[in-house]
Design a binder for these strands. Structure first.
Lengths: 155, 155
DNA sequence: AGAATAATGATATATGGTATCATTGCCGCT
DNA sequence: AGCGGCAATGATACCATATATCATTATTCT
């Protein structure tokens, strides 16, 4: 995510939890913080590293996955299935209503950019799906591409 | 895929390979055939089962993955990243030019339906991505939903 | 036939994720 | 403060997905 207002994001997350009876414990904060700080999506096992204690202890994998589940439930984190990695939601601080999200993933540098899908695109997709006999539920789109930085580097 | 014209599909695959100097060996045919016959996407390890010999020998995992790589290169098979499963391309027999594909995956029964994305939707997505500083390369979309059969069952 | 190359096999291991049961820590109560 | 109950975390074991590496078998080409 790599943002400047990290503190504000963490505070907002804390507030959202308080309002909904969810507990943002120390470890959960640690994991969320690591994701918010990272420009790229992180794997569960990379997150263990990011959260290790001064004595070098790692979180057990089970805990990492449970914490990720919690953070996803709360809407703070998305899982990217293309890479089996996790990324902080860009809308934590702005408290947007959560719409269908779309992730643009650079195949060269792994940069992840989350954008909102315009209403129009969503509606088109919904009716395309309907024609094929499907009702859409949770269309999270993950699309591979090349970011302009990498594209320019190549040229 | 679950189609009636299985033989025609296999024949067409054979022809495409011949035209392009690719070898559709016996094992590759076996794997492709298993995928063409299945209504749901199959995992690599399920494919081992589908292709076992009379004596019960299984393909080594490495071979399955290599064969799947080959079939994907040839455009006969898609990998679904949402489920880490593989499915035959619906366009083998009709020999369509390959456009961006979209998969509708039923969360209840695992039915997979491949549809073409209308030109319009693609172009919208491309310009959305461009606004965010991305150039799209291989937009394969995988979308969760509920097929009408399951939806009606629920009601 | 023999060399070169492509395909497959075998073994080991990395990586991603879950099941299960034990332990810890927090919260409210009296 | 002490205690009971429940949520969160830890520990161990394990399954599922995928790859690295080297050995062997088939094809193809001369």
């Amino acid at each position: 995510m790599a943002v400047s207002n990290v503190d504000q994001i963490m505070l907002q997350a804390q507030n959202v939890c308080a309002e909904n009876g969810l507990k943002l414990t120390k470890k959960r904060r640690q994991v969320l913080h690591a994701l918010v700080m990272s420009t790229t999506a992180l794997s569960a096992y990379e997150l263990r590293e990011s959260c290790k204690t001064e004595t070098g202890d790692l979180l057990p994998p089970m805990s990492v996955y449970r914490i990720l589940d919690f953070l996803q439930e709360a809407g703070f984190v998305h899982k990217l299935n293309l890479s089996n990695r996790y990324t902080a939601c860009v809308h934590i601080a702005c408290n947007h209503a959560h719409r269908f999200s779309q992730f643009l993933i650079c195949v060269k540098c792994q940069l992840v950019t989350e954008i909102n899908i315009p209403e129009l695109t969503i509606n088109n997709m919904k009716s395309d799906a309907e024609s094929a006999g499907f009702e859409l539920t949770k269309p999270q789109l993950e699309i591979s591409g090349v970011c302009y930085t990498c594209k320019n580097k190549a040229a």
